[in-house]
Amino acid sequence: MDTPAPGRRRGRSLTHLVLRLAAAAGLAIDAAVHARLADQYDAVGDSLSQGTLFRLESAAASLAALLLLLWRHRTGDLFAWAVAASGLGALMLYRYVDVGAIGPLPNMYEPVWFTDKTLAAWAEGVATAALTVLLLDRRRRRPRPRS
């Protein structure tokens, strides 16, 4: 089995570190924005308010950032990717489509861009992109079974 040269391994490690830090920073920004905005959205919704959903997003993004920095395991990376990608997907969906209320989820349609929404979108996008590269690179590196 071929072992990568030490310099190449070091370069890959540095790249992974940069990707991991970029994703963690994006998730931390996402968590901060959602935590800061949560109380402004408490009135949106009946059984489950949009403010509560913002708090859940903030908690999930915080946990994902910590997992990226402290655990460094594929499962944590997948969780972080799911948090970032679903946050970005929800943000874009409710920005451009009036979905209406779905079960306990309130109608979160908000067809405007403002500073915090733009910041959250960029942060989630950076995190999603960095984690996608990290996860795809890991899949390629898996050792192949010997025949």
Rank of each mutant, 00 (worst) to 15 (best):
residue 24 A to H: 04
residue 42 D to W: 02
residue 67 L to I: 00
residue 22 A to F: 05
residue 68 L to S: 14
residue 14 L to W: 06
residue 14 L to S: 04
residue 41 Y to K: 05
residue 15 T to V: 06
residue 29 I to P: 07
residue 38 A to D: 07
residue 34 H to D: 10
residue 77 D to T: 09
residue 37 L to C: 05
residue 26 G to C: 11
residue 69 L to R: 12
residue 15 T to E: 01
residue 77 D to N: 12
residue 29 I to F: 02
residue 62 S to R: 02
residue 39 D to S: 15
residue 30 D to Y: 14
residue 20 R to Y: 08
residue 44 V to N: 08
residue 83 V to T: 10
residue 60 A to E: 01
residue 44 V to G: 02
residue 10 R to S: 09
residue 58 S to K: 00
residue 47 S to F: 04
residue 22 A to R: 11
residue 50 Q to N: 08
residue 51 G to V: 08
residue 55 R to P: 04
residue 83 V to R: 04
residue 57 E to P: 04
residue 8 R to E: 14
residue 76 G to W: 05
residue 12 R to M: 01
residue 55 R to S: 05
residue 83 V to C: 01
residue 19 L to T: 07
residue 46 D to L: 08
residue 61 A to S: 15
residue 35 A to N: 05
residue 42 D to T: 11
residue 31 A to P: 12
residue 64 A to K: 14
residue 60 A to K: 03
residue 50 Q to H: 08
residue 9 R to M: 09
residue 74 R to H: 09
residue 21 L to V: 12
residue 32 A to L: 14
residue 56 L to V: 12
residue 43 A to N: 03
residue 41 Y to N: 03
residue 71 W to Q: 10
residue 38 A to I: 04
residue 46 D to P: 01
residue 39 D to V: 11
residue 11 G to E: 11
residue 32 A to R: 10
residue 65 A to G: 09
residue 70 L to P: 05
residue 72 R to T: 01
residue 79 F to Q: 05
residue 42 D to E: 15
residue 21 L to G: 01
residue 13 S to D: 15
residue 64 A to F: 03
residue 18 V to Q: 11
residue 10 R to Y: 01
residue 74 R to M: 03
residue 75 T to R: 04
residue 11 G to R: 11
residue 9 R to N: 01
residue 21 L to T: 10
residue 38 A to L: 04
residue 83 V to A: 06
residue 14 L to A: 14
residue 43 A to G: 09
residue 23 A to Q: 07
residue 75 T to N: 00
residue 15 T to C: 05
residue 11 G to T: 02
residue 43 A to T: 10
residue 22 A to M: 13
residue 79 F to W: 07
residue 30 D to A: 13
residue 40 Q to K: 15
residue 81 W to G: 10
residue 20 R to T: 15
residue 17 L to I: 03
residue 8 R to S: 15
residue 72 R to L: 10
residue 71 W to I: 01
residue 53 L to S: 00
residue 75 T to L: 15
residue 21 L to M: 13
residue 25 A to F: 09
residue 36 R to D: 11
residue 22 A to T: 13
residue 42 D to A: 15
residue 63 L to V: 14
residue 64 A to T: 10
residue 32 A to T: 06
residue 27 L to M: 06
residue 31 A to G: 09
residue 62 S to C: 05
residue 17 L to H: 10
residue 19 L to M: 08
residue 26 G to V: 11
residue 58 S to Y: 04
residue 24 A to Y: 00
residue 48 L to T: 08
residue 26 G to M: 12
residue 83 V to K: 03
residue 50 Q to Y: 06
residue 80 A to R: 07
residue 67 L to G: 13
residue 29 I to H: 01
residue 37 L to H: 07
residue 56 L to E: 00
residue 71 W to R: 09
residue 16 H to I: 02
residue 71 W to M: 06
residue 14 L to D: 05
residue 67 L to E: 09
residue 17 L to M: 07
residue 84 A to D: 06
residue 60 A to T: 07
residue 32 A to Y: 08
residue 60 A to I: 01
residue 56 L to Y: 03
residue 23 A to T: 14
residue 36 R to P: 04
